[in-house]
Write a protein that binds this DNA or RNA. Structure first.
Lengths: 201, 201, 201, 201
DNA sequence: CATGAATGAGTGTTCATTCAT
DNA sequence: TATGAATGAACACTCATTCAT
């Protein structure tokens, strides 16, 4: 049914404008009117494609997740173990403009997640996907002997995920302290440590 | 003579209620009315002690920072180097109810910081204090030989700060994944690595 | 297609209600809600047509000026010199219900003008137009010999303008003392004097 | 009873501050707090001397009237007829700082009078006193032959009163157009005309 | 008498949402 | 589909007033 496809297509087009508004002005300032203005259409037009404001904001988050996942699929294609893991971690950092926008979006939803179970669920689902993906890569790397096998893969993943969000946040808040280069240095050191075997001593 | 009220004291009393509202309902739902209700007084009463809502929210953040710093001063008293650093890192995690509230507060302001320079400045100032404190402890530990001296203290501090905020966030969002115990395990591993000398190989 | 509303037209319609409220209840009591009630619509509806309350009040004054000027243009069409001047002066007095409303409006803004430069500017501009118009008519009358040429036209205009506002005010405040007839008598005497030549002695 | 005298004395002292606030900031901005601040005392203190805000504002107007009347009594002492009348008219114009403040006060109450019968009554009473005083002086002047006897004294008074308020208003609104000198010139011309006999032709 | 803390109503304004066109 | 006019609730804030001290 082409009509539905168009409908879905238009939703995704509109969401791009939503991302820009949220990233630029913050979630609080992302009023229906501001979004409508950014889409160069009217406020009421949005209501044809989205049930209500909550629907807009939730879909904006989900679509961002989907796009990020697709990009990471492309980037990781052909890579294995430690190399794939490193690529995955780096892709989650705000190292270029595109990913900075994604990070601004994500940070905007964190506080919202704390008080809204639905949003938390959306983010939690995506976090789970990323977590599982990392665990798989870590186990693979450990099996190959490229990574320290002492620590549980799940725990390593948890630390990497924390590091990703912490660095992302600080990079946005204090860009003068955490340039892309500085972020990569920290990740590099992390991987050096992950590779070092304790039995080597 | 009128009812004597220590202005500064009353401000701090009122802010305790503000913390509760923000932590429970989020910054968005923290209306003047909601705050007034939590303080068991009227909306107008707040205006005796605070210029406007922004003044309330800014002071709430600053006071939280001050209280945390005071607590950390007490906890670190007598400790040195690695031990002090470990205590400092752990104190910044939401390991009990009190610190969970503090973390909820902090997370609530992150998004606000992205779009409001004044808030970002408040948080940046506090982040600087913590960063400098960590650097001093790391250098001390390195001099004592308790910690790997290869890596710049500043970079180590940056990673620890990122880890703290990342873990804090995830502990709030996904408590089933990051129990206090799990958080401590990750920190312990981190410190094991920080202590391990690369020259040992 | 949405309900088509000529924006400017609707603004003028709404302002008619604003005039009534101001004239009846005063500028102080002219709250957005009171105005909305008079327009038989909601408070928020006004915000589609006016930026804020100040925009409403300023436009109300300006539109009143425009309407008055248009009426005076019609009335003075074909008249010259003294006759035109007399017609102009009389039109500025609250001699019927319509002009009483206009005068109430004007008086309401006087006090506002004293403390707000923008309002004073609006009124000053209009006062200038009226002043210049009078001066032109007076000069014409003086050239024709219908009016005493001794006194500067500008000074005569200044006196007439003062007389207009003073009489208007008193007619509103003390209608029992200054009926339309009484106002006209005073104006008539004024014109007799203006016509009398000092050289006649 | 000395206590009452003190009470009354304090009321008058406080009102001087009220005048300043009204003249400087306008009636709208004359909040209890602003007035209290100007009196260097507290808001509640005013409530010991005045029933409510309306009482303050009404008394401020009445006291101003009384002071003006007292000053005019002093000025007119010993003067008669036309000379007294001229002095009276001039005293009612904002020719110096003191009288400019009085005029600002008066203008502030005009709009208030239009919608509040009590205020209108206060102003009406004072206007009556002034009107009667003028009529008496005019009749005296006419009897002495110093003033044109054709026109009813009451009508002449009415025109002078209108001229006074019109000039006063315009002098405040457009001081560049109506300097004290310009105001006096207009009054002088008015008196020249009042003295000129129609039978002289 | 004087204070200033507290109240609660009322203000302008913004907003998501609805709906006739 | 799309528009934008309209609604009404919610917001931060200001104010006159009251009252315990």
């Amino acid at each position: 049914m082409p009509k539905i496809v168009d409908h879905e297509e238009r939703r995704e087009e509109l969401i791009a404008a939503v991302w820009r508004v949220i990233a630029r002005d913050g979630l609080d300032a992302s009023t229906i009117r501001a979004i409508a203005k950014e889409t160069d259409s009217s406020a009421g037009a949005l209501s044809h494609y989205f049930k209500d404001k909550d629907d807009i904001l939730t879909f904006a988050l989900k679509l961002s997740h989907r796009r990020i996942r697709e990009r990471q699929n492309r980037k990781l294609d052909g890579l294995k173990g430690v190399e794939a893991l490193r690529e995955l971690v780096l892709d989650n950092l705000p190292l270029d403009e595109e990913r900075e926008l994604e990070t601004r979006l994500e940070v905007g939803y964190w506080a919202r997640s704390l008080t809204r179970a639905e949003v938390r669920k959306v983010q939690g689902t995506e976090a789970d996907v990323l977590h599982k993906r990392m665990v798989a890569l870590i186990i693979e790397a450990q099996r190959r002997g490229d990574m320290d096998g002492e620590t549980a893969a799940s725990t390593i993943a948890e630390r990497l995920l924390a590091l990703i969000d912490g660095l992302s946040l600080h990079a946005l808040l204090y860009p003068e302290r955490l340039s892309p280069q500085a972020q990569m240095t920290i990740i590099d050191q992390e991987f050096v440590k992950l590779g070092r075997r304790s039995t080597a001593a």
